[in-house]
Design a protein around this nucleic acid. Structure first.
Lengths: 247, 247
DNA sequence: GAGTGGTCTAGACCACGAG
DNA sequence: TCGTGGTCTAGACCACTCA
């Protein structure tokens, strides 16, 4: 009905996918090189490569130039819990995660200025996270906070993220609202290589900003998660109406 | 540093992308056929086609077999508002949308049974939505409700969605919780053709379920939105803590 | 240097859409 | 039937990795 002539490419991709799913080719294992594989399936190398490209965007195969094609080790699924939990809590939840933080002072570029409702070039502190699980890259995060909300660091030391989080939670006008936007896009070349994913594998992007009761945006975050193994979960309770009804 | 030899494919894709962005090729317009284009860029047809494939996964170009390559008309961005707003309210918000509903009685397959916490093969009513904007497909939705919560329809008529929504809102054990999971995947072939997107363009999938205070799942929804123009937004308020502090 | 993947070519043949 | 895109080939040449 749809495609009476299934393409060689898809047939090969299906076969390899099956072999991986059933464990006949194991995670981490190297596939045979492309030429022998092509010969085995009796197709030309471009066709074989197209088949691999299919598996690549599905996140099943990782190509490494000069080394070979590898079956990707199934990483744990990443669940982003929306609705006010800080990244801090996220990280604490997974002891297996290893986090690298870089702190920089920057001047708000246009898009951040809009997101945080500050004037352009306002001083911000950027916390840049690279999160690893078991030596494999897992996710990327960048968190921005107005400089005056970040505790000063010692000489030449960088401000502490934990300190900043504690400070935010004790803010005078208290935190009032978290807004999270989830969208999908292709990774930038840098993101693709940092996360070690195909540049054709879409990423889940979460843009978050937190405001206090005065409407000031005290934090903005940009999270990039590999689309093949990330979910974002949001739970909303109707408790308010209930309490009102009960009270 | 990364790629000292930019590929012809990317160069061509960049050029075409630029031409589209600057309006030199207008939305809806047909590109020159592939052979002339290839000749113009002095590359072979597969190379030219690879360049088009790049634009296709970006959602900029739509290929139509036998007709040509077309610049996609920029559709409005779709914003899914999370946190309890029903699809009903979603639709009402956009007068320009046209909705087709199909209603079916089904028996819960495994994944739905798990999601709704009912036993397998339980009777469910499926509301299947195909949403159009201005004659172009826009999004897909499937909503499942246990049959006993759906008002009976007249003979041979199908149960009304509006009636079902009203009924849910008046439920005896009131609604208590909405849980929404956002993830990314490639579209199934059917979804790709229904939404008229490339099968390489990722879709945003929202799985939602609503439970009453007794923990019964009274509604589950599966939404499929084209990844290149969909966002999901979730807003969480800290009002509860505030009220507690004030009271 | 040997082996791997990355890109490209020039052209063949098939399938779809419209007249 | 004609023009369009869809798939595939056989082989060339380049770039990266590792010994």
């Amino acid at each position: 009905m749809i495609q009476p002539v299934p393409s060689r490419r898809d047939a090969i991709a299906d076969d390899l996918r099956d072999r991986i799913a059933t464990g006949r080719i194991k995670p981490g294992e190297r596939l045979p090189s492309e030429s022998p594989l092509a010969a085995q399936y009796r197709v030309s190398t471009p066709t074989l490569r197209n088949a691999l490209a299919v598996l690549q965007v599905e996140g099943l195969v990782e190509k490494v130039h000069g080394k070979g094609n590898f079956v990707r080790r199934p990483l744990h699924r990443i669940t982003y819990e929306g609705g006010g939990r800080t990244l801090d809590a996220q990280i604490a939840a997974h002891a297996a995660l290893r986090v690298t933080v870089h702190t920089t002072r920057i001047q708000a570029p246009g898009h951040l200025a809009t997101l945080m409702r500050v004037s352009i070039d306002s001083p911000l502190t950027e916390f840049s996270f690279l999160i690893h699980e078991d030596k494999r890259p897992h996710s990327l995060a960048r968190i921005y906070v107005p400089c005056d909300l970040v505790p000063a660091a010692g000489p030449c030391g960088s401000p502490s993220f934990d300190g900043m989080v504690r400070r935010l939670l004790e803010l005078r006008p208290p935190l009032a609202e978290v807004r999270e936007r989830v969208s999908v896009r292709l990774p930038t070349p840098e993101e693709a290589s940092t996360l070690r994913i195909s540049s054709a594998l879409a990423v889940l992007v979460i843009t978050r900003h937190t405001a206090d009761t005065a409407g000031r945006v005290v934090e903005a975050a940009l999270l990039v998660l590999p689309g093949d193994r990330a979910d974002a979960v949001f739970t909303t309770h109707y408790v308010i109406e209930e309490r009102a009804a009960e009270g």
